[in-house]
Write a protein that binds this DNA or RNA. Structure first.
Lengths: 203, 203
DNA sequence: CAAACCATGTTGACATGCGCAACATCTGGT
DNA sequence: ACCAGATGTTGCGCATGTCAACATGGTTTG
């Protein structure tokens, strides 16, 4: 496992090779099969480990916040910070884990990381900052924002260094928070939604 | 190229094989090398084609908007709609193109797609809806939102079908737009920024 | 018109990687 | 002492990416 994680950190998902992991661990090229069913299975284990550390990073960053509102912003910053510090782990977690777990009837890895963010939203609702309606759409919005920032930053699409990326994340998070707290016209997404004002899908 | 694109649509980046493309094209396993330097080069060509279609989808969706504000929202919806309709193309464009083009001194593929969104932001500034400061941070925020929604939806992390995902995108985009239009405390990101209120990076 | 040239395609070979099967070793329990 | 299970090893078949050498058909040029 340790060799696998360091290799992911160095080579990324594309350069990740079962045999190279075995070489680094000082064992034969087939030894990993005694612990993992396949290459993808090892990747999935690395991804699971990564999700645990992502959750830890977020909760740790939140501890520096005084208010519930600041804690939510810091939660998002922690998300991006994790992605910046372990970009290749992040790629494995989201680029591959989704594909792989969908074959295994999706045990929904990484659910706990999302719950941290969701709880931060609920805390704001209980504090009266946000309306006490369905918190999921707001949580999805926040998640999408930080996830998008993380992905774009990793891909080199944002011309910012790490510190500026984090600073931008904080400001963007506060902007979005302003946007979702002023009104509450998020509709219901519980399978009974009407199709008002559809964009231009499948035209 | 046609065989390559259909294969990407069916098998995704992981199942994409140079030899399979050759088989589908009815040629020998080495024929593609007369047109592309390597497997990655072919992937990059597919990604470039995809970015062109992404830009076309966004501009087409924007035409249905009456106001500049509605056009920006539809622009984001077009982004997500493209990702939902050609999810594997989308993965190639962003998951692989970033890695590959970074080796080739980044000709910055996909720049034109971002410009569509940036122009929509500038249009709102010229219309007085948004302050006329640096439009980049706002554009990044919008981009990150729709990109995050697209990635999460493709990965199956949003429990919404395609139509609901698009409806959610529209509402989230309007929420974020409210957030970035009310205030304008986006700081300057031109290499001269101070490190005020840093989150908890590299602690 | 013939010769050189180029684009395209083909065959063969080599290195690497994944995954399977059979065999070896080492440990703990009875 | 013996067995069962866990772990590791060697060897193999298959698929892939990539390179090198060769073939072919059309185009340009002397």
């Amino acid at each position: 496992m340790q060799a696998a994680e360091t290799l992911i950190g160095e080579a990324g998902p594309r350069g990740f090779t079962l045999r190279e992991v075995a070489r680094r661990a000082g064992v034969s090229h087939n030894a990993p099969y005694r612990h993992f069913a396949s290459r993808d299975d090892l990747l999935l284990a690395v991804a699971a480990e990564g999700f645990g550390r992502l959750q830890a990073t977020m909760t740790k960053c939140m501890q520096h916040g005084a208010s519930a509102r600041e804690r939510l912003v810091l939660c998002g910053c922690g998300y991006v910070e994790f992605a910046l510090r372990w970009p290749r782990h992040f790629l494995v977690m989201f680029d591959l884990a989704g594909e792989l777990q969908s074959k295994h009837d999706r045990p929904q890895i990484g659910e706990s990381a999302f719950r941290v963010l969701l709880d931060a939203i609920v805390a704001l609702q209980q504090g009266g900052v946000l309306p006490a309606d369905d918190p999921l759409p707001r949580a999805w919005t926040a998640w999408a924002l930080v996830h998008g920032i993380a992905k774009l930053a990793i891909g080199g699409n944002l011309p910012l260094n790490q510190r500026k990326t984090l600073e931008f994340t904080r400001q963007a998070a506060e902007s979005v928070l302003r946007g979702i707290e002023h009104f509450s016209n998020h509709e219901n997404f519980d399978d009974t939604m009407s199709s008002t004002g559809r964009g231009c899908i499948l035209e």
